[in-house]
Write a protein that binds this DNA or RNA. Sequence first.
DNA 1: TGGAGCAGAGAACGAGCGTTCTCTCCAGTT
DNA 2: AACTGGAGAGAACGCTCGTTCTCTGCTCCA
Lengths: 208, 208
Amino acid sequence: MTERLTPRETHANLDSAQDLAARASVIAAANGLFYARGIHAVGMDELRAASGVPLKRLYRIFPSKDAIVEAVLLDWRRLWSAGIGAAVDAAAEPKDRLLAIYDFLAGWFGSEGFRGCAFVNSFGELGAQSGRVAEIVREQKAGFQEFVFKLAAEAGAPPGLGPQLAILAEGAITTAAISGSVEPARQARAAAEILIGAAVPPLAVKSV
Amino acid sequence: MTERLTPRETHANLDSAQDLAARASVIAAANGLFYARGIHAVGMDELRAASGVPLKRLYRIFPSKDAIVEAVLLDWRRLWSAGIGAAVDAAAEPKDRLLAIYDFLAGWFGSEGFRGCAFVNSFGELGAQSGRVAEIVREQKAGFQEFVFKLAAEAGAPPGLGPQLAILAEGAITTAAISGSVEPARQARAAAEILIGAAVPPLAVKSV
DNA sequence: TGGAGCAGAGAACGAGCGTTCTCTCCAGTT
DNA sequence: AACTGGAGAGAACGCTCGTTCTCTGCTCCA
């Protein structure tokens, strides 16, 4: 497994490591720029300047801008899953885990540079032209629906609750993005509490 | 008031009428093309071909493409208000008027060429670059919130219900656009029924 | 130490777009 | 009937952007 490498091979390996670092740098830069300003609005030269990766190397790592867009979408998916997963896992009770979604949203909406759902924005901008973008966005949204669905099931709710809570979250994101207010998160949370209460009668009622 | 016009003035007036017709034709064409494919993706030449209005006249009527975008956004607002207004007015009972929103959405989601909310799409594509676009979209969404708020008030609901129902509608639109399904309208409707029921206890309860 | 090859910087290229210009033709005036 | 003003068609212009190419210089092997 651990073979001897000639100096040239070592050099080649170092190149790969550099490529990996450059790749990460490009994705990080593109992530921020695409989210803040949209995808067409950010040119390759700006990406080069922001990432510090020369154009030549950039095109060696990614065959085209489309490939960068795809990589960034996948990175957004990873970040979103990690963020909301951590927020939900910080709660123990099934109902609190559901409500943690909206608390997570409130924090996000209030954060610097919040500009709505990156997937929805990309879909609006490129979904009609790029099948790959539309596909990734669909997968992301289906994954979130599934995530909420499972949390709802763990709370003992009937299957109808999951989609309702997911729609509330989606609507809160869009509304917050356009209005620039954090309120939609609280409003969605209040609605979710009512829907959860209606779907999962509290045990306390039975014991009374 | 009804002055005599020289033939040249008459001609000038006819020109104005032609401009009006051309304006309507351009907006109608742009409306369909922008919605289906996005705004950057549609060039002025395509707009000329689709509307039948020569480029020269087009630029006499609208100073720039941005002006066309703005006119189309205002047209979308008019169409949306008229559509949802008619749907709501077809119902008499306050609660039914609220629920009519989601039935209207179901019909829209199932219609040919549905691609989500034109305002949200435009906002995602241009909101970061064009302050005017962002402004119109914000106004449109604020207007819809107000519309739902008034309907909720007429149903005797506390002020919290309006935003919740608006968020549900918004979430349903986005979810339907990405998933391509009509289901979100039904799911949002079901959630709305529960929220309305919780906010406005039925009179029947009092009479029992 | 001489040479080979690759990296980086940035110019160059080609396509697409918004906008303007030119040329031709026709309607209406004198 | 000659002329003028404007309309239409489409070429042209200038700019941006994705992508590729060229040139310079450095680093690693013999």
